[in-house]
Computed example of a mutant assay.
Amino acid sequence: MFSLPANPEVNEILDGVPVVRMQDDANELAALISTFYDPVALELRNSDRHRTRLRALLSLSTKYQADRTRAHAVKFLESEWPKTLEDWFLHQSQMSERVRYSKLVRHYDFDYPAEHFFPEPAADLRLAIDFQVPSILPTLYYRLAISDTQIDFDQDFESQGSLSANWKLLQARDWMRVTRGKGHLLKAAELITDIVIQLPSPRCQEREACKKAVYAQAGAIHIWDASADFARQPDIIGKVFGILDSLESYASGSSFCCSCEYSFQESLRRFLNDTWEELADTFDLASEGEVA
C-alpha cells in the first residue's frame, strides 16, 4: 500500500511526499506500528478490563497481516483462560482464595468481587469469536453459563459468591448457546444421582451401612439439584469437585465402605472428565464449526 506510485494529479502531496489517508484510529495504528520496533510494546496485561488495546492489536494485525503481532495477541488471549480441567480447577481455586484473603486480611480490595481481578468472559468471548480463537470458547461459554444474569460485571454488589459478566456484549446466538447449554448441564446433573444409586458396589463390605449412605448422598444431591440457585448457575463441575473433596476429607459423613467409596470416586472422576471434554457439544459449538 505504501509503495503505490504517487500521482500528483490524484494523490495529495505533502512536502513532496504522497499522503496516504487511513481510516484507522491514529492511536490504535501507532500501537500496532510500535510493536514492529519495540518488543516491550507487545506486552499485554489483564488489567485492561475492556480489552481496548488487545482488540485494537487483533483488529489491525489481522487487517494488515502483521502475523507476528497477531500471533502474540492470540497467545495472550488463550493464556487467560483454562483449556484443561486441571487448569479450570486451579483458576476457580485462585478466585476462592482471593475471597478468603479479602475476608481474613480486609485488604483495600475487600469491597470488590474477586472476579474483578480475573478476565471478564463476555469481552473475551467477543474477541474469540470476532478473531477466530476457538480454543477458549468452551471454557468461556461454561463460565457464562454458571454466572448470574441478574448481575452485571460493572455493577456493585455484596455477594462474593456470585459470578457476573458484561452481559450487554452478548449477541443473540451467544444467549441461545448459554441458555441451551444450561439446559444440558441441568440434564447432566441427573446423571450424578444415577451414579449414586448404582451403589453399593459388587464388592461392598458393609451393604446395609452403604445403602444408608446412598440414600443420604442422593438426598443431598437432590437438594442442590432442585434449587433455584443451581438452575440459574448450574456449575455441575464445581459441585462434583465439592463432592469429591468431601469424600476425600471425610466431611460428607457418607459412611461408605472402602470399596463403595472408591467406586463412587472413580465414577465421579470419569463424569468430570467427560463433562469437560463435551463442553463444545454442550454449547453447540462443533455443529456450527466454531471448534474442530
Rank of each mutant, 00 (worst) to 15 (best):
R173E: 12
E80R: 14
S201P: 06
R180P: 00
D174I: 00
N273V: 04
F76H: 10
R126T: 05
R53T: 05
S135W: 14
F117N: 13
L29R: 01
M176K: 01
S164T: 12
E158N: 02
R49N: 03
F118Y: 15
G16R: 03
V19S: 05
L42Y: 08
R53F: 08
P82H: 14
D154P: 00
Y101A: 12
Q65G: 03
S259W: 06
F271Y: 09
G219Y: 08
M176L: 14
S249Y: 00
P202S: 11
D274Y: 07
C257V: 10
Q23L: 15
I136V: 14
L14M: 07
D25Y: 00
F256R: 07
K63W: 11
L244S: 05
L140V: 01
E12Y: 09
Q205R: 13
E261K: 13
W276F: 07
F117A: 13
S254V: 07
K83E: 15
W175Q: 10
Q198W: 01
E277G: 08
L58C: 13
S47P: 00
D174L: 12
A292C: 02
F230K: 03
L125I: 12
K168N: 11
A128G: 11
T282Q: 07
L77D: 06
S267L: 09
Y215R: 13
F117V: 13
R68C: 10
R68T: 09
E277P: 01
L279V: 03
D235T: 09
S59D: 11
S287T: 15
L60R: 12
Q94V: 03
I221E: 14
Q265P: 00
E43F: 08
S34H: 10
E208A: 14
L279F: 00
R51G: 05
K182Q: 05
D111F: 15
F256P: 07
H50K: 05
S159D: 15
F256V: 13
I192S: 02
R53Q: 11
K187Y: 15
L170T: 13
S162C: 09
P119W: 00
S159P: 01
S255A: 12
A286I: 04
K211S: 10
Y112M: 04
D87M: 07
P113S: 15
T282P: 01
I221D: 04
D152A: 09
A165C: 02
E28Q: 02
E80H: 01
S255H: 15
V105T: 11
V214S: 03
